[in-house]
Amino acid sequence: MSARRIFARPASFAAIAPYLWMVLFFLVPFGFVLKIALSQTAIAQPPYVPLFDLWGGREATVAAFDQLSIENFKLLISDNLYILSYLRSLTVALVSTAILLLIGYPVAYGMARLPQRWQAIAMMLVIVPFWTSFLIRIYAWINILQHDGLLNTVLLKLHLISAPLVWLSTDTAMYIGIVYSYLPFMILPLFATLAKQDPALLEAAADLGASPWQAFWQVTFPLSLPGVGAGALLCFIPVVGEFVIPDLLAGSNALMIGQTLWLEFFTNKDWPVASAVAVVLLVLLVAPLLLYERLQHRQLEAR
C-alpha cells in the first residue's frame, strides 16, 4: 500500500467540518428560499404564513402541503415589472461581458508579452484593485462623474463641452462601474491562458507565411478560448444579480433583477415574492453555474 493511499483517508476526514458548514449555511438556506417562495404573504413578523411545522406530525405536514401555493410565481409571470427586470439584467450582463472582453483581451495580451520578470509585477498590479474595497471603487467614480465632478470640469476646461453633462444615474455610468469592478476577473483568466502559450507556435505560423494578424486569429485566439470562456462566465454570472452598482450609478427608471429583489424585500417587505424572484434568478443561472463548475474542475484536474 503506497504512502499516498495511507495519506488519503485522514485527508478525507478534513472534509467533515467544512462539509457540514456548507450544507448548513449554503445548501439548507436554499430550501428555505424555496419554502418561503411557495408560501403566502402575511402582515406579520416574519411577514409570511408559516408552512411546514416539522414537529406537528404527519397530519400537519399533509395540511402544509395543501397550502403550498404558486401564487408568487404566477405573479412574476403576470406582472411586466419582473419580466422586464430579468430581461434588463441579462442584457446588461451580456453587454458588460462583451465590453469587458474588448478591453480585457488587449490588456491581458500586453501582459502576456511582457518579459517574464515584469509579468509577475503586472499581475500584482491587476490583482491589487481587486483587493481594494469594491464599494470604495464605485464611490470613487461618483466623485468623478457627478455634476460638478472631475470629468465635467476637465471637459469644460478643454472646451469639449459648453455645459456640464449628466453622467450619474445613466446607463453609461453603470457600464463604467461594472467594467471597472469586474475587469480583473476578465484579465486574469485570459492572461493565464495567453501566458501559457508556446511562442514557438507563432514562429511556426510566421514561418508558414502567416501575417501577425492571421497568426493571431488562427493560432493565438482559438487557443485562448478556454480563458475567454472562464473570464466571460466569471463576469456574466455575478453581473446578472448585481445590486450595488446599478443602484448607485444607474437611473431608477429601469431596475435590474437584483434591485427588484432588494425592493421587494426591504421596501415592500414582501418576503415570499422576493424569494420567488430569487428562485427564478437561480434557475436562470444554473446552466452558466454548472458550466463554470465544470471549467473549474477541469482546470484543477489538469494541474
Partner: peptide
C-alpha cells in the same frame, strides 16, 4: 460567483 442578493436572502 453566486449573486450576493441570493446568498444574503
Amino acid at each position: 460567483v453566486m449573486p450576493e442578493v441570493i446568498s444574503g436572502l
